[in-house]
Write a protein that binds this DNA or RNA. Structure first.
Lengths: 354, 354
DNA sequence: TTTTATTTGGCAAACGTTTACTGGAATCTT
DNA sequence: AAGATTCCAGTAAACGTTTGCCAAATAAAA
């Protein structure tokens, strides 16, 4: 057998370990090595064994770039988030990463920081690396910018609402369940005067949360009153501002429900500064159950939306699009109340201060 | 010119836009296109212009996998962290990502979760994707496991201390400065009885912080006393346990300094539960200045270690290794005190309770 | 004008895989 | 036992770039 010599061995120096090295060591062709690695079932048991041994002794692993170049699969998913320092996202990332890694994928994280220019960069980066799909978990309104991804036929998954496209899916969040639990928890304690601080209303998910609140209020027989409804922007500052507005009004509610935890934490601050005790003088409920919620004072009663479920749902959806693009599946994420210490009986009730 | 036809056009369907398409459109060879994109200076102005135009109108961008396959550069850096849900890390990631992206790099994040098996997986993942360097920001003791990276000659950068290797660097953190500031802040308020809750002492960075504390105490003329020195483990639970131990002792200190913020927050909890007011009855100082520190009650006085500096330092170090491996640079990260509301006059002092 | 030097662009070989195709050996039919 | 079938390993083409080498074209020198 005439040893086929590798051409142009000028700068050999230190070559990376190669599939050919394995082939030579196991005395098979590179095709067999490749097939063994990819667990193609037609390769003979004994041969495969030999190949695996060689791989092991040589400590070889395949070159991903070469692999994905020829197979056309990057095994890369993009994950688009708002900002990584927002405590909501790291858990989401963790869940997504876990799914990805255990399925042989890698993940490319893009933080938009609410900046249109950055979104563009992120999309570009993902496109360049040939991601096989993108999970858009920003809750924002950047959808027009994602047109490029749609036209390039990159599978995508969104939360709540998604642009049209055959390879695009939306994860449904059941806001109603958790928010209803929150409202009923308050109602059970005796609250009737409940305010709601929403997120930015141009955001679909903010609208949905607000609607869920209104519906839950109707269910307990309280007519939603306009001057109980404030608009925040899902930031700490927004929560502070909204609560300040609220405190200026003539009639105070006995409880406040917030569209997310940061808003609630902002509200908590203003209340503390105004000398109002929580929960004795005002109950507060958040939404999301971010890590922070537990550490704040008092620990925040909040509606949990599992980041892990969200992450898993997004990953599975992306995979599903790849594998069965014709099937339009629907995934629903559930929510539920976590009771901590920011809720109690309404002030002035017989039981308050107990 | 005989149009060289692409062989085997069976499954053309929808080909991705190609360097050849650009070449054809600009009426040049693919080599020229490549050189234009890579800004090789020998390409003629006019031609380059034409090529850029074509690239623009076709909306082309190169395939990264092919690129890195042939060039041998993945333009990928690994970032190894302990756990992404630990609020210390997201800011670090953000800084690192920013540096990376603006330099045309992508980043692969690996969370060890303090699990040896996962570390192995992370290293493997990074190796498979051919990272050009790894920033190990775990503060842990996983160094033996990284031997593989050393032997494969992957540039690496660590915090505080690094294993031997020509392509390995360590970032120096100036713990002394911030910790001295903390101790002097307490001393200025009148504290003399100061405890220290360290991190796990098998961790180099824990040792260094502890040493810095002892030295700072000597500087203010207080002999470090053994039963003022506790060992925690840098977690909330560890901080709680240590503080509980402390409260059992016969003589209480008037202030506690902690090796990180989570420890301090744990301590805060135990103090609150024990009915001790902070800072009136006990002052507490943390370390790191994580996001959380500001939101805890009372807002935590702490020593800031800039995650951004750390991230930038790590990135620059990795780049420096690539470019001038012979030069052994040293980068120092500074620290400094952030005074919030968990420190005050010692109890019993004339001014306390003011 | 001819020769020599200098640009500059094109050809084609790599990069390390996967995979369609091929053909020899083994197994099955009759 | 001969032909038909099945099985499986090897050959080589392809993936989309970069880049060493070379030739054509242009400029400079003689």
């Amino acid at each position: 057998m005439p040893e086929k010599k590798r051409p142009l061995e000028l700068k050999k120096e230190k070559r990376r370990l190669d599939i050919r090295d394995v082939a030579k060591h196991a005395r098979v062709s590179i095709a067999t090595v490749s097939r063994t690695i990819n667990r193609v079932p037609t390769v003979d048991k004994a041969l495969a064994e030999r190949v695996w041994k060689s791989i092991d002794t040589l400590n070889y692993f395949p070159n991903t770039q070469a692999r994905s170049l020829v197979s056309g699969r990057s095994r890369l998913f993009g994950l688009l988030i708002s900002e990584i320092t927002n405590p909501f996202f790291p858990e989401l990332i963790q869940g997504f990463e876990e799914m990805a890694v255990s399925n042989g994928y890698e993940i490319l994280i893009g933080s938009t920081n609410y900046d249109l220019g950055r979104i563009d960069t992120c999309i570009r980066r993902m496109l360049e690396r040939n991601v096989e799909g993108v999970a858009v978990m920003t809750f924002g309104i950047e959808q027009p910018l994602l047109a490029e991804l749609v036209t390039r036929e990159v599978p995508m998954v969104f939360v709540d609402t998604a642009p049209a496209g055959p390879l695009v899916r939306a994860l449904q969040v059941d806001y109603q369940k958790g928010i209803r639990e929150g409202v009923q928890h308050l109602a059970a304690l005796g609250h009737r005067e409940i305010s709601f601080i929403s997120g930015p209303l141009q955001q679909r998910s903010s609208q949905l949360r607000r609607q869920a609140f209104l519906r839950a209020m109707e269910e307990i027989g309280v007519a939603p009153c306009n001057n109980r409804l404030l608009e925040g922007n899902h930031t700490l500052e927004g929560g502070m501002a909204a609560m300040e507005d609220l405190l200026k009004k003539s009639s105070l509610p006995t409880a406040v429900m917030c569209s997310n935890d940061m808003t609630a934490i902002g509200a908590l601050r203003v209340l503390a500064r105004a000398g109002m005790k929580v929960p004795e003088e005002m109950s507060v409920i958040g939404f999301d159950d971010i890590h922070l919620a537990e550490f704040v004072y008092p620990p925040l009663t909040t509606v949990q939306m599992s980041r892990n479920d969200l992450a898993r749902g997004a990953f599975e959806a992306l995979r599903a699009i790849r594998e069965t693009p014709e099937k339009m599946g629907r995934t629903t994420i559930t929510t539920g109340l976590i009771v901590r210490q920011s809720t109690g009986y309404p002030r002035g009730s017989a039981l308050s201060g107990l």
